[in-house]
Simulated scan of single mutants.
Amino acid sequence: MADALKDNPAINIVTCEFNPPATEVEINETKIKFKLTPAMLDFYNQVNGINIVWNRIGEKEIPGGGLAAGYINILPIQEVFKDWENIIYFDEEDPCKPLHPIDFFIGNACAALYLNGSDNPEVYYYYRGEKMRPLGVDFEGYLELLLKSRGFWYWHLAIAGPEDFNPDAPIPSEERNFRKIMPQLFADFDGSDFQRFNKE
């Protein structure tokens, strides 16, 4: 994906950083807290965090609001499984306490594992101060969608939908921009890969 972005004449790469693989110590310390899935082990044994920022050349800002840009910030394994008190949750009763961000793509928004005791936790979209919303995928599924979306500005909302379900509500501008602009930038984009998970 990174190579394809660099070769795309419509794209300007702002940042493209791949961390070295997680160390055996970092992985073993995480295993004490959580039983890592095969997909997690495979990923973090190859790279312990990714930071990619790109934008459309000449037309980064979208009329009406939003950005024609991509933001990916896959956190290192030791960050994912730390205590997120006062960042994600603020007291023991906070329903967001089980969330552990894996992709903190924007300062106030992330995709996070919901660690509720499952051996293969789901990934949720979370904007601080709003309701957390399931994306209907696990860690591996999230990475697959991330590759297809190239981290486009708030692509998660194409799956998560608005905070409160309303079938008569207009499509959020972030989702509309994602579905409109992605085919202009990437010939292989298939919008059917991004179906609303919450439909009611």
Rank of each mutant, 00 (worst) to 15 (best):
L143E: 06
F189W: 12
V14I: 15
G107A: 09
F186W: 09
P170R: 12
C16W: 11
P167W: 02
R150D: 01
I181N: 14
P63Y: 09
W153P: 02
I87C: 05
A160H: 10
F178Q: 03
V123C: 06
V123R: 05
K180L: 13
K82Q: 08
S118D: 15
A109S: 13
Y127Q: 08
K6H: 07
G191W: 05
W54C: 00
F104G: 09
C110S: 14
D83N: 14
N166T: 11
D3E: 08
A4W: 15
G136F: 00
F18G: 05
D188N: 15
P20N: 13
F81Y: 04
F186S: 07
W54G: 01
R179G: 05
E59T: 15
I106N: 06
D42M: 02
L41F: 06
I87L: 07
F43H: 04
C96V: 14
P98I: 08
I159A: 02
S149V: 03
Y124C: 07
H156L: 08
K35R: 15
G117S: 02
W153T: 03
W153A: 02
D164A: 04
R133S: 10
F90P: 07
A22P: 12
D190S: 13
C96D: 13
N166Q: 11
A69K: 00
N8P: 03
K148M: 01
Q184G: 07
E174A: 02
D168I: 09
E144G: 10
R196K: 08
D83A: 11
Y114I: 05
D103Y: 00
A22Q: 15
L185V: 04
I13N: 10
F189C: 12
G64W: 04
E61T: 14
N177F: 03
L67Y: 09
G136Q: 02
Y126T: 04
M1Y: 02
A39H: 04
